[in-house]
Amino acid sequence: MATAHTRMRRPFLGVAIGAVLAASAAGGVVFAPAALGAVPSEQALQQAADATHSGEIALVNAQALNHVVAETDVPLPAETSSVDLADLKKSVRVLAHADELSAEEVADRTADVILGTVIVQSRTADLQDDLTAAKEAEAARVKAEQERIAAEEAAKKAEEQKRRAAEALAAVNTPEGAKQTARQMAAERYGWGEGEFSCLAQLWTKESGWNYQAYNNDGGATGIPQALPGDKMATAGADWRTNAATQIAWGLGYIDRAYGSPCAAWGHSQAVNWY
């Protein structure tokens, strides 16, 4: 993968090689043909040793990166999945025995190692860039996948909650479900036991038959408690038209405020036919 850093480095590679070779020549490494069998100078041998050391470091770094890439699960293009070390290894191995070479051979092999070192260093940097980019891309992919899964799970959870709410609403909106809800609500909120609930059951059976859709065409009384007008029940919840539990909550509150108990309300209803 060619990054901006890589593109800047490639022209620099040629400049670096030329500079290194020129510096080596100026230091006593002669690249022009020399007398066959001439003994290399101490300066040439030192430069050969320096080049060998630099090459070995480049090989170690490249080998370490190759190992990291081989062990990672992050996918990389096959053509950029490793740094080729064969040429530099061979050149370093030969130059390591510079004292066994002629002056001309030392100069040639030193040049080979310097060039090979720069190439391996450049390709190592390129591979590191590619690995970093691949890891970032993989991290982004994993994050996106996690977010997708989380969104799906949230949607499923919301759908399940919606389904359960619909089932609960359907259950409470039946006469028996409404009675069970009223019994529990009367006990938990007002401390009214079975005796009071018995009065409540008779009262609302008379008023609406525990039908949350009950409506009195003559006066407009609405719902299980027959609120008049029906929109009074909005104080207990915006869903008062469709939810028996909301109607019951309002109706129990009304009985508590107006009569103090269901039996008192039932007694009033029996006396005057309304409550």
Rank of each mutant, 00 (worst) to 15 (best):
S198A: 07
A234P: 01
L95R: 10
N216Q: 15
I255C: 05
N173K: 11
G195F: 01
A186G: 00
A144L: 06
G193T: 02
L101G: 09
A234W: 10
A139P: 08
C263K: 06
D99Y: 02
F31R: 04
K232W: 07
A23G: 07
A38N: 06
V39K: 13
A201E: 06
L88F: 05
N243V: 14
I57N: 15
W274H: 02
V142S: 01
L169A: 15
V120F: 13
C199G: 04
T205V: 01
A25R: 06
G177H: 01
D256R: 14
E71T: 14
A48P: 00
E188H: 02
P75Y: 06
Q184M: 00
R93A: 12
L65Y: 03
Q63H: 14
D108C: 04
G260F: 12
A98H: 10
G37E: 08
I255A: 12
V92Q: 06
A186L: 11
V30N: 14
C263S: 11
A32E: 06
A140K: 14
C263G: 07
D73R: 03
V68K: 15
A22R: 11
A186R: 02
V118G: 05
A134E: 00
S269P: 09
N243T: 13
P175I: 10
A201Y: 02
A214L: 01
E207C: 02
V272A: 01
G251P: 11
Q43Y: 00
A227S: 02
T110N: 08
N173S: 09
N61W: 12
T110K: 13
A38V: 10
L21E: 11
A137F: 03
R183Y: 00
A58L: 15
G28L: 01
H67S: 15
F12K: 07
E136C: 09
N216W: 06
A23F: 05
L127Q: 13
Q43H: 12
A171D: 10
A86R: 06
V83K: 02
V94N: 05
L36F: 11
S82G: 14
Q202C: 04
D239V: 14
